[in-house]
């Protein structure tokens, strides 16, 4: 056995000697190249952000200069105060925050309930329903726009917050994501809860939701950004 090990060690040493100078140089070069590539791409990705921020701090004449300055000569914060006072930004921010928070909370509740039913409860037509849900993911949203426009019109929801929230509450993608997560939670927990006489609903809030918290947080972030 140890003789064998020795043999391997000798072979290994010989192999090490085979690494030539060129190969030894190649590795740091490749690493440097990788970093260079990533840095260049990162610069390209970041540049529009950079440009947006510094342009917001420039005076109009400096913004229109023939040779652009990469750093504003004098930092103008008045653009921001002006945007807030003339553009009514406060109201716009309130709209965004309100719609974002309300729709995220409602959407989470609906997603949790649906995903739980699809993952744990037994009922007729479960698989058919799940397949139908997945099929709707493939249909382009533009197909809904026209009729939804008419629907909210007949509901008299025009120019209300409702119209920004309700039609977009159900996301099959989130339901699918959460169902997969719920399925990974061992069923024994559910059966144990049943033996103890816990109701489905209590089990869902006390066990499933805390266990699936990471997925729920990522859904929250995604929905907030979308709204």
């Amino acid at each position: 056995m140890s003789e064998n090990n020795n043999k391997i060690k000798v072979m290994h040493d010989r192999n090490m000697q085979h690494i030539t100078l060129a190969q030894r140089l190649l590795k740091p070069l490749m690493t440097a190249g990788t970093y260079l590539f990533l840095s260049v791409m990162a610069l390209i990705v970041l540049f529009p952000f950079y440009w947006m921020i510094i342009s917001s701090l420039k005076t109009l004449t400096e913004y229109q200069l023939n040779i652009p300055t990469f750093w504003p000569k004098e930092i103008m914060l008045s653009n921001y105060t002006e945007a807030f006072s003339t553009g009514n930004l406060g109201r716009l921010f309130f709209n965004t925050a309100y719609v974002g928070i309300v729709s995220t909370i409602l959407s989470l509740v609906i997603t949790i309930l649906t995903a739980f039913a699809l993952a744990r409860l037994e009922f007729k037509g479960k698989n058919a329903l799940f397949a139908a849900l997945l099929a709707t993911m493939m249909i382009p949203g533009e197909l809904f726009t026209i009729t939804n426009y008419q629907t909210v019109n007949t509901f008299n929801w025009m120019n209300t917050y409702t119209v920004l929230i309700v039609p977009f509450l159900v996301s099959v993608f989130y339901i699918y994501l959460l169902r997969q997560n719920f399925l990974q939670i061992p069923n024994e927990l559910y059966l144990a809860a049943k033996v103890d006489g816990t109701s489905d609903f209590k089990y869902l809030w006390k066990v499933m939701v805390p266990l699936a918290l990471p997925t729920l947080i990522s859904i929250t972030i995604l929905k907030m950004m979308g709204a």
């Binding site: 649906t114 039913a117 409860l121 339901i175």
Partner: peptide, 8 residues
Amino acid sequence: AWLYLAPA
């Protein structure tokens, strides 16, 4: 089960 699914 359908109660859970109803809103969606």
